[in-house]
């Protein structure tokens, strides 16, 4: 029997190298590619027909409407141009989580390097948008309004730490939830064999946990996009 952590091992499917740099195509890359293809399918199937929308088109447009209302609620009307960013982040993470729920599939969102890269994209983007929108006035973000000036050295350091902690908390939240959920599922299903006759109790528990995992898959993609919206609003409005 494999260990509960065996499912997170990265395996090479075939080797591939460009100009002496090794870029092996792994199982993680395969599911990322599948997820990107699913997102592309959503994008290209939306807006096809008005009279007879297919199932995929309705699904894609529902997700788009959901993201649109999310962005409008959290950023406001000025946030319209960030809808593509939030949409692609949400759908990519959602499909990654959901493909991971297929037995024998690989959950690429359980790799911290991937979630950290996604969070870093968001972090670099919000910093750039802050600088482009406000210029050097952006640095006033690090001093809360109405704070006494003699407290400034302490407050600025604290605010910078909390600003830098954003990509880390974003990435760790997604990675930890996915990894913990899948490990827990595996451990519980291993109990089924070792308990023998009483294994049926863990079968019930595992079925409940699988439903719970589906909820987590949606919720974590949603939380990631909500937080992206909140951070964007923070730098757009500057207090």
């Amino acid at each position: 029997m494999h260990s509960p952590l065996h499912q997170f091992e990265i395996e090479k499917i075939f080797n591939f190298s460009i100009a002496g740099v090794d870029l092996p195509f792994t199982n993680s890359a395969l599911y990322m590619l599948l997820s990107v293809l699913a997102v592309a399918l959503l994008v290209f199937s939306s807006g096809r027909s008005i009279e007879k929308p297919g199932v995929i088109q309705v699904f894609a447009e529902k997700i788009f409407g959901f993201i649109q209302s999310l962005v409008e609620e959290n950023i406001g009307q000025t946030g319209q141009k960030y809808i593509p960013l939030v949409f692609s982040l949400f759908t990519f993470i959602l499909f990654g989580n959901l493909f991971g729920m297929i037995p024998y599939a690989y959950t690429f969102t359980s790799q911290i390097i991937l979630t950290f890269a996604l969070a870093l994209v968001v972090f670099v983007l919000i910093t750039l948008i802050g600088f482009i929108k406000h210029g050097f006035h952006f640095f006033s973000y690090f001093l809360p309004p109405g704070a006494p000036i003699f407290m400034a050295p302490l407050l600025i350091v604290i605010e910078i730490i909390s600003f830098l902690s954003r990509p880390i908390s974003l990435s760790i939240r997604l990675f930890a939830n996915m990894m913990a959920g899948h490990t827990m599922l595996k451990v519980f299903s291993m109990f089924t064999i070792s308990l023998g006759v009483f294994g049926f109790s863990t079968i019930i528990a595992t079925s409940v946990l699988i439903g719970f995992e589906f909820m987590i898959a949606f919720l974590q993609a949603y939380v990631f996009s909500v937080l992206t919206c909140l951070y964007l609003r923070d730098v757009i409005e500057l207090h």
Binding site: S69, I161, S165, I168, S169, I172, R173, L219, V223, V226
Partner: peptide, 28 residues
Amino acid sequence: KVKNDPKTQPSFGFLRISIDLVSSMAVG
């Protein structure tokens, strides 16, 4: 209806608290 009701706007604070605390400490 959903848009105008502030109660339906989730902030998911309960999911964020633990990791926000730990990550700020880690960065410090």
